[in-house]
Design a protein around this nucleic acid. Sequence first.
DNA 1: TGCATATAGTTCAGATTGAAAACTAATTGA
DNA 2: TCAATTAGTTTTCAATCTGAACTATATGCA
Lengths: 412, 412
Amino acid sequence: MSLGKNTDGGAGRPAPGRVEDVRRGNLVRILASLAEPRTDPDVRPTRADLASRTGLTKASVSSLVAELVDAGLVAESGAARDGERGRPGVGLELSTCRGVVGMEINVDYISAGLLDLGGTLRIHRTLESGNRGKSPQSVMALLAGLVADVAAEASAAGIEILGGGLAVPGLVDTGSGTVSSAPNLKWHGVVLELHGLLPGAPQGTLLHNEANCAALAELWYGHGVDFQDYLFVSGEVGVGGGLVIGSRLFAGPRGQAGEVGHVVVDPSGPDCSCGGRGCLETFAGQEAIFAEAGIPDGTASARLEQLTALLEAGNAAAISAVSRAGHYLGIAAASTARLMDLSAVVLGGHFTRMGPWIAPAVVRSLADYAPGVVGPASVAISELGQSAALLGAAGSALRSVLAAPQGLRPGP
Amino acid sequence: MSLGKNTDGGAGRPAPGRVEDVRRGNLVRILASLAEPRTDPDVRPTRADLASRTGLTKASVSSLVAELVDAGLVAESGAARDGERGRPGVGLELSTCRGVVGMEINVDYISAGLLDLGGTLRIHRTLESGNRGKSPQSVMALLAGLVADVAAEASAAGIEILGGGLAVPGLVDTGSGTVSSAPNLKWHGVVLELHGLLPGAPQGTLLHNEANCAALAELWYGHGVDFQDYLFVSGEVGVGGGLVIGSRLFAGPRGQAGEVGHVVVDPSGPDCSCGGRGCLETFAGQEAIFAEAGIPDGTASARLEQLTALLEAGNAAAISAVSRAGHYLGIAAASTARLMDLSAVVLGGHFTRMGPWIAPAVVRSLADYAPGVVGPASVAISELGQSAALLGAAGSALRSVLAAPQGLRPGP
DNA sequence: TGCATATAGTTCAGATTGAAAACTAATTGA
DNA sequence: TCAATTAGTTTTCAATCTGAACTATATGCA
């Protein structure tokens, strides 16, 4: 799965044109089935399980699995004992000797991590770095170093890297690897040199929007078990967002959907940095909340600590500031829910720190402005920490590998 | 293509891949290729043309076309002369002896029409009928009569009916044929008896939302040539909407997306009939515009005539009322464009009558609230008349037949 | 008129693929 | 020890597309 522009929307027609295409489709089905979360992580599916799940015959599954094992994407993992009668099956799993790299460039730090095909985060490195206004070249050099460390460690662990994904806080064009606009980094129209990050990885590195990645991480590793359709709102310096519809990211025709921070919540509101007026970001962005709460200038993380402390101490100004942000957030969410037929909202980024104070305001506002559409139980706080975007970027690369297993030669 | 809920987004995991599926996919490709608009309507594609368009071999195309001709979906239409050397090919077209029925129930009228597979509207009947508050049974009985007339005429013309679509102004559940909520008809939770409308039609009748149908009609028969992604806003008694992304309808996870009439455009605005507050509909619905323009009570169409007359006479109150509606419409469109990465807006329904007065206000508002996102050239007025919803409902049924040609026995 | 050339469409052998059924393998339980 | 049961493999077969050879029908020039 790519995070790129989505244009198909539904009954797309990946219809096979040739007999050989059927096989690729079925290989992907097997991989998808193996990637599904297991109720008991110790019990792995057998060929017979896969046959009944996919509807293919045992004979076909045997042949398909043999090909995937040869390609190094799938591994047998000993007998899958079931205590029942009959010959025990052989457990199968996605290879833990292949993986993808997730990367993130944010305002205050960069990070990189390795996810194996089974979906386990095997390595995770973060480096504090004030990237605001720093040149893209220097930040990319730092990142390349961090990734090289991760790659070396992966190599030592016998894991081959197949591809990667990089999340940045801004509008991106995935196809060309361009950051069109990242106001918080002060990058505009920057073409990133993604090619050198993962030398030798057959699938290369794709560039993604940070909020979209976090929304996907939420889907795969967070509240995705509860909701198939939701608006993810990421509080960072600005307010980012991601739309998940039918357990898939809705990226829009040019890959720039989800900009909930620039939904107009009050037409007579203050001017916004985007050139518009009354955008959600002018009410729920960090600057707006800190100013309203009376928190003096400083680094973002220090100010956030102060805000949290004030909230916990029951400070009225802080609570009012956060409630106000929640109120407007609820308005934007109400509009989004009506427009896109969504039924849940997940709050992420710095909003997680304000969870107990902001969520009730969001719920109230939703009840006022879109009664009956998003109930209180459908406003959730993300439980993924700072690694959300990295997980999403890596997960996206992982699904991309599993959805297009062609061109992979046999490996370890 | 169905207008139902869209949830998969593309890489869905339908039925296991069998060798036979390849053929169905290729049959659909041939049909889709034949359904594409032709530059010169008199020049029909030949088998050789189809082979080069689809990438299939001539041999495969011959076999596939033979099957479609046997099924009565495709017809040969004489020699396709090209004046060039070589054996002339045989022109192919979608059969004009098969068709689908489009139907609409609206506040003031009902209508039904027949679209042949080639996309030509062959029959079109409208019946004035004040349906507001009338019982669903009696309206459906009227419609059934109108449809029977259309079916009789179709039969006389030798056209076999394969399926149909019914558009109603309200939230619907396509799967169960339920009108969940149609405030302007005063219908709520009504299950329509769709089965009896088209006896013998193999694909049956599907229920759709009127604004979504109009948005699709715009795509297939209107501004779809200019825009692949747009917000369609339909002014009726309320304000409906449809979202087209990548030349496909975005219907949302439960088929209820596009409710732009209930986007919040002013959090301190008036209460809305939906239970919310400050919705676009409270500023741009018919009642709001008529009240603001000082037009006395009366039938909707009479009041609309008065408004148009006042606008044409340069009446300040009328112009101001319409500008105000356009202002708020632009705000909702700005939010939608940012959220969903859209780049165009098409105005339909009664807004078409106000076109010259409302469009500039929408453009101004978009420039104020989402600068650089939707330019003046991307705000368009629909040129389809009252038949838009009917065309969309029929077109949807047509595409549904072409996308799932299985189960059709040979015909005339 | 006749023949070279060009294009359309058909026929047939060959390759790929999954389904179905028969078969082999490994385990439980009486 | 052996019947019952479940896992996985082998074999045969039908569906489908490709590619190449072939037939059909036109133009254009001598």
